[in-house]
């Protein structure tokens, strides 16, 4: 098991190094960064000095290693547009995005799994058919449209929930500002979280349904029935556990994409998170922010993947055996 974790960590480092290389390459593709810092009438001598002080005349490989070393210490340089360290900017906005992503992931799991189980068990029920139809909408409608429709219904027409922003936030443990502890913060979270999580929820629902139907056909479920176990024990003890093995993988990967694709939802709801920051960075060719965002998201994916693999091994004893052997 330890060998497996170590090997996976090594692989993770490799993945992150290649992502860092891509992020680093971005700097060189969009022209000379010094031009971003100086004006037209800056003396050539001063430009040279800036270039030297920034280390831009070192060999590429040295620059790359310096970039990686800095990134390892959470140091991603200074944003061109804000003239502030990128790390500070991202850290300020990370809580908003992470809270949003976490709540929508929770929403998609807590609603998606029971709905999937229900539609699998009551395949021909009216409600199950309704769920199936609604899930089609969730899968096929684009996020921004769902967001706008929800705003129109709940914010504009009914006036129950705010249409933008995070509401009041509270600082906890120094720098983390949370919207989870105030009433207005919670209210502001509902629409964006539903918008962001709807696609994942329908995906999980359909996945759980398909897996559950598959599992219910297996011999061990038939045998469990033949042993006279109660329907509840068969469905929720034996079948559900087997259903969740593949769901764990998908749900883990989806959590990564929820964070990465929060950009659209954040834009629709003017959510002050990393997504909005990233969009602004793209508009203003703010390479340090874009590069840092890229590295950070991929690091997140790598961590989630590792966690999923470990979780997988916890649920499935067969996998544990292979890992022990490895």
């Amino acid at each position: 098991m330890l060998a497996f974790i170590l090997r996976r960590l090594m692989q993770s480092v490799l993945v992150l190094l290649s992502v860092a290389l891509i992020a680093f390459a971005m700097f060189r593709f969009v022209g000379d960064p010094v031009n971003q810092l100086v004006s037209l009438d800056t003396p050539a001598e001063q430009v040279r000095q800036i270039r030297e002080s920034l280390g831009l005349d070192d060999p590429v490989i040295v620059q790359f290693l310096r970039y990686v070393a800095n990134a390892a210490q959470m140091e991603f340089g200074i944003s061109y547009q804000f003239r502030q360290p990128v790390t500070t900017l991202l850290a300020e906005r990370a809580p908003a995005t992470l809270e949003l992503a976490f709540v929508s992931a929770l929403f998609s799991l807590l609603v998606g799994i029971p709905m999937g189980v229900y539609t699998a068990l009551r395949r021909d029920g009216v409600l199950a058919r309704v769920f199936q139809a609604v899930s089609l909408v969730g899968v096929s409608l684009p996020t921004f449209l769902i967001g706008i429709l929800l705003i129109y219904l709940f914010a504009v027409t009914l006036g129950w929930l705010p249409s933008f922003g995070r509401g009041e936030t509270v600082k906890i443990s120094g720098s983390w500002s949370t919207g989870l502890l105030t009433w207005s913060g919670l209210k502001a979270l509902v629409l964006p979280a539903v918008t962001l999580g709807l696609f994942q929820m329908t995906l999980i629902m359909r996945l759980v349904r398909a897996e559950m139907l598959e599992v219910l056909r297996t011999d061990y479920i038939k045998f469990a029935r033949a042993r006279g176990l109660s329907t509840r024990a068969v469905h929720f003890g034996h079948a559900l556990k087997n259903t969740l093995v593949p769901v764990i993988t998908i749900a883990g990967l989806q959590l990564g994409s929820i964070i990465a694709f929060a950009i659209i939802t954040e834009t629709v709801f003017q959510w002050p998170g990393m997504g909005v920051l990233f969009l602004k960075a793209v508009q203003n060719v703010d390479i340090p922010i874009m590069a840092a965002y890229l590295v950070m998201i991929s690091a997140l994916f790598v961590v989630i993947n590792l966690a999923v693999d470990l979780l997988y091994a916890m649920v499935d004893p067969r996998l544990r055996a292979t890992l022990k052997g490895a």
Binding site: D219, Y220, F223, A224, H238, N242, V245, D316, P317
Partner: peptide
């Protein structure tokens, strides 16, 4: 091989 639930002891 398939009569026993693989996830239960």
């Amino acid at each position: 091989l398939t009569s026993l639930n693989p996830l239960f002891r």
